[in-house]
Every structure is written in structure tokens, then in C-alpha cells.
Design a protein around this nucleic acid. Structure first.
Lengths: 244, 244
DNA sequence: AAGTGGTCTAGACCACTCT
DNA sequence: GAGTGGTCTAGACCACTTG
């Protein structure tokens, strides 16, 4: 049994804190890919030369951070990532809540990043990226229009093939086809007016008020892997947030 | 030393889970008022006849639920409640973030609850409540208009006295004057158009698009103690949310 | 110095899942 | 039944705050 020694801990840092960082690094490095199981607690504890309780403390931390998931009797797993449906949790359109809107890809192309998208993705403006434009509908009625920017070459495998068969949720697709697991996201909700081209897609008139949700999605390592702008009729839009 | 026995636990419930519920009940019953300290871990553990570790587990739960706060070397305290400023955490108006807008009470009266407010507060429509109307400003510019409904007789002490001396944050006032501690809130964000009376207060024209934030605020026991509708210029409004 | 919460350990036993 | 995580205990020692 090889004992993996902990890195020197800064004064004031607990052993389980340092241990959690070490394990987090191993997860991010891909030692245990998303969805797979970590070794058992016993194994990890003796690997790192700590008591079981200390190891469990570290795993608790990682679980609270959303990095891993522990299933009684089964094991400890690296979280597979956000489903994409969980993004709609707080999002409501008209009366229909909980439903995942149907999705139709309007266009897909490689394009030069505009300044805002580049900033969000942490890339230089002018770099090439994959741009998707999606129309989403509820009950046959178009309700949301999305402009999605994806960095290349990470998402190269989405540039080929027929997008009409893609699922309504993109994040499982990112995971399957590109090995990208969306782990966290930040949304900014604002207000705007529709330009003519967007209005046409949504069956509204140019200048119509719209809700504008700008999202950055991040992977396990904290890299921004998606920049998305979603627009929909301001009057049908609702967003619910819980504050503690 | 009197030992407080735990209520019979349902099969499958852990001892620390039951213990947490018991302690939560004692907090809600007011045995230790918000801001005050609980007995020490040692004391609580022997009071309930459990090991220290088990008691600590229970306190951990309550801490995660936001009911208590533990300060190293000082003690365990019942959380005093949301400051009110924390509500603005995700809220941004123009460039100014973090600033608490100055507040001016436009009106205060006892009025009959309209249906929506009654539903939010869990009361019957037609019951009397205290209604506040506030204008909030940043840098001298009016930016937000609030309609606030407070149940009576709980907030009776706010019906008298001069409101011009009230602080910009209402929640500390609720705590001090009415013993009401806001502990959790739910906000619904939507968009609307300003009616003429509201537009005038905000220095905008009738029909101008506005963001509309409807908030329910709850106390420790889970009662809704405030229903608030906030409106502001849609074009200056931003709201940021983090999703995990 | 006394009192508080925080860390760490070691071990027994329980509950769940899979085969 | 073997292997996993979950609970509970008892005790030593550390770190922070207060008087």
C-alpha cells in the first residue's frame, strides 16, 4: 500500500481541508472521470494515512461543494454534471412550469467571437468559436430564442453531423460528445427589446420587450465552457429565487 | 442534571436528526431568542443524553439550515435573521452595486388586503393589514418603488410613531420593534409596465417597462411575515443568480 | 485560566446494495 | 455474504475568545 502524503498544509488549515483539496485535484485531473466511482473510504483513508473519520470529513466537504455524490451501500461517485433541466428550475413561462421546452436548431456555424462572448469565455476577441442558434417551444408555441457560443476545438465534434437529432437538453450532449461536464452556472437576468430578426422567430414584433438571460456555464475545473444568451417575451417570463 | 429524552424516532431516522428537530423546536418556541447563545455543546449533549459527537452532528444540521451560527471560542447563537441588505446581493441597478439605496416612506396606512397579498401572507382577503409605500433612491435618483404588506396585529407597533426616522433597511426594524426576524425569502422576478401613479414617483412615463420583484419573507417558524412588490426601470435592472 | 467550539483518532455496530 | 457508506461513541488534544 502506497501512502500518498498530504501536501504541507498552511498553518490553520485542517487535515481534512488539505485532504479535500488533494482529492479535488485528483478528480479534476481526471483520475476518476465524472460518473465513475472513487475508491472506498477505507482505501482512501489508508492511502492518505488518515483516520476514517478524517477522510469522511473531507468527502463531506466535496459533497457539499457538489463535486461528488455518495450513495449508501453503493459508493462515492464523481458528479456527472448539471442536467440542463435543472437550469429551468427557477424559470417559468406563462403557466407551464417544469416542462422542458422542445428545441429546434436554427443555425450552426463557426464564427469569430464578439467582445462580450470572448470576455465571458475567457478568450481573446476575434478567436473562432462554434455558434448555435436555437428556438425553443412550449406546446408548439415558440417562447425562447438562444444564442450559444462554444469554444473550439473543445466542441469540435458538434460542428459535424446532423443537429436535428440532438436532444432538447444540450448538457448531456456536451458530456457524451465532447467530454464536457457542466458543473456550475451563473445567470444574469436583464431586460431588452427584440431586434427585428429575433422578433420574427418568436412571432413578436420588432422592439417588443424581452427578458434577456445571460449565462456562463463552467466545468469541474472552473473553466467557462459555454456563453449563452436567452431571450423571450418579457410579459410571459418569470424567475423564482430563494434567499437564505 | 435533567435529561431531556428524545421523542420516539421514526424508524430510519438518525439520533442526530431527531435531536436536531428537537433543538429546532426549542429555538422556534423562543427558548433561546434570535441573537442569543445556546448552552454549550457539553451541556446540551448531557441534557439530551447523547455523545458529544452526536450533538455536534445535530448542530451542524441546524447550522446548514441557517437556523444557528457557531463561532469558534464564543459559542452557538440563534441567527438574528437576514439583514435586508443581503436581499440586494443579486440585485444591481445601473452601475451601483452593493450600495443600499436611501429610503423614503411615501405612505403608511391600514388597509384591506387585496387577494394576491392575502394569498401570499396566508390570510383571508379582506383582512386588515399595514401597507407601506416606499421610494428608494441611489445617488439622489429615485430607482425603486415598493409596496409592502404587513400582517396585523403583529406589526402594530409600526402603525404609530414617525416613520421618517426609520432606517433604510426594514428588517432590523422589524426585529427591534416587532420581534419579527426574517429568516428566509422567496422572490419572483417578472416584467410589467408602470401605471401612471407609479411612473410619476420614479420620474418615468406611464406604460414604461419595469422589472417587478414579488417577495415573500418568512420568519423562523415558516410564517410569511411580509409581502412586498418592488418595481424599477426595466432597463436599469439586473439580477444575478448562481446555479449548482 | 477557564470556557467555548474545532480537529483527529479508533473502534463498534447499523443499513443499504449487489451478486 | 461481502462490500459499501452511515451512525454513534469516548476521549485526547488544539485553537480561539474572554475575563
Amino acid at each position: 500500500m502506497t501512502v500518498i502524503s498530504l501536501p504541507d498544509r498552511e498553518p490553520g488549515q485542517s487535515r481534512y481541508g488539505a485532504l479535500a483539496s488533494a482529492l479535488r485535484a485528483r478528480v479534476i485531473a481526471g483520475e476518476w472521470p465524472p460518473g465513475s466511482a472513487l475508491p472506498s473510504e477505507q482505501t482512501l483513508a489508508s492511502e492518505h494515512g488518515v483516520a476514517l473519520g478524517t477522510l469522511r470529513r473531507a468527502l463531506e466537504l466535496l459533497e457539499h461543494q457538489g463535486l461528488i455524490e455518495r450513495l449508501h451501500g453503493r459508493g462515492t461517485f464523481v458528479r456527472a454534471g448539471l442536467a440542463g433541466a435543472s437550469m429551468m428550475r427557477f424559470f417559468r413561462f406563462g403557466d407551464r412550469s417544469g416542462e422542458v421546452p422542445h428545441s429546434h436548431i436554427l443555425s450552426r456555424k463557426t464564427a469569430v467571437l464578439p467582445a462580450a462572448a470572448a470576455r465571458a469565455l475567457g478568450l481573446a476577441p476575434g478567436e473562432a468559436a462554434l455558434k448555435l442558434r436555437r428556438l425553443r417551444s412550449l406546446g408548439g408555441e415558440p417562447c425562447l430564442l438562444e444564442d450559444i457560443w462554444l469554444p473550439l476545438p473543445l466542441f469540435e465534434s458538434l460542428a459535424a453531423g446532423e443537429p436535428s437529432g440532438w436532444s432538447d437538453l444540450l448538457y448531456p450532449l456536451y458530456a457524451e460528445r465532447c467530454g464536457v461536464h457542466v458543473h456550475r452556472a451563473v445567470e444574469d437576468i436583464g431586460f431588452d427589446r427584440l431586434i427585428a430578426a429575433d422578433a420574427r422567430q418568436l412571432g413578436l414584433s420588432a422592439g417588443h420587450p424581452c427578458a434577456k438571460v445571460i449565462r456562463q456555464a463552467f466545468d469541474l475545473a472552473g473553466r467557462c465552457v459555454e456563453h449563452r444568451v436567452t431571450r423571450g417575451d418579457a410579459h410571459a417570463f418569470h424567475y423564482t429565487v430563494s434567499i437564505t
